[in-house]
């Protein structure tokens, strides 16, 4: 029986409720099981970022509840949410994920410092992570010396470092060329396959959409289609 990691019930996000209400997200149901590799797609302005922000506990829905591992995160305070994110969710943003003054490995180590992980454990984990993302030789390099694709892979390493329940990635390939995008997807797929890491990522790039096992399409803040049936049948291990 697969475990549910994300369970969003009829969530909506309304901007300017008092003047001209804008439904950025309108009555969305979203249910994600452990081990999924799901793309959230739709044209610009369709509400992808808003959905991801709400699921990631960065933004509160106007209506509805979101359960992450059976915790209703819409009931958490701001500071509880920060802590919740730190321990449960890995984030990869479109760009500028990294602290420019820190080396690649320090960027991944940073989040483990926030978690209070011991030095020995951090170092072992860093070796392992950078091996996984294939950037062992770039550990001591500053972000500015890395290509866009390499920076995104370091961001994935950082997201993974805390051993989150799932990773949210908002258009992680939007700033990458197709080769780098493909390599990032390779990495994400590998982590999904080998470590059973759950991914939910947004995109409007068809080549990326093609790599997803489940595709949820948003139009004007509503779910227009969901290929959920296909996704749960992926044989892993």
């Amino acid at each position: 029986m697969p475990k549910t990691v994300i369970d969003a019930h009829t969530i909506s996000k309304v901007y300017n409720p008092d003047t001209i209400p804008v439904y950025a997200v309108n009555n969305v149901h979203l249910h994600l099981e452990e081990g999924e590799f799901t793309a959230l797609v739709g044209p610009s302005g369709s509400g992808k970022t808003t959905v991801l922000n709400m699921i990631g506990g960065l933004d509160k829905p106007t209506e509805g509840n979101i359960y992450i591992n059976e915790v209703d995160i819409t009931k958490l305070s701001q500071s509880e949410l920060i802590n919740f994110r730190l321990h449960n969710i890995g984030f990869v943003f479109q760009s500028f994920n990294l602290i420019p003054v820190l080396k690649a490995k320090e960027n991944a180590e940073f989040i483990m410092l926030l978690q209070g992980v011991k030095k020995k454990e951090r170092e072992a984990r860093l070796q392992q992570l950078f091996k996984e993302i294939g950037l062992e030789d770039k550990m001591d390099v500053r972000p500015a010396q890395l290509s866009g694709g390499q920076q995104q892979r370091v961001a994935v390493a950082r997201a993974l470092a805390t051993r989150p329940r799932f990773i949210l990635a908002d258009e992680p390939t939007a700033n990458l060329d197709s080769v780098a995008a493909s390599k990032l997807l390779d990495l994400m797929e590998k982590l999904n396959r080998e470590e059973y890491m759950t991914f939910l990522f947004s995109t409007h790039d068809q080549r990326v959409i093609d790599r997803a096992r489940r595709v949820i399409t948003l139009v004007d803040g509503r779910i227009a289609s969901d290929t959920a049936a296909v996704s749960t049948e992926f044989p892993h291990g």
């Binding site: 990631g56 960065l58 994110r85 984030f91 989040i111 926030l114």
Partner: peptide, 16 residues
């Protein structure tokens, strides 16, 4: 500004 937002997003406490 962006970096500050990003740090809080990934789980850095505001007190830190």
């Amino acid at each position: 500004k962006f970096e500050m937002g990003m740090l809080v997003a990934i789980g850095m406490k505001k007190s830190k």
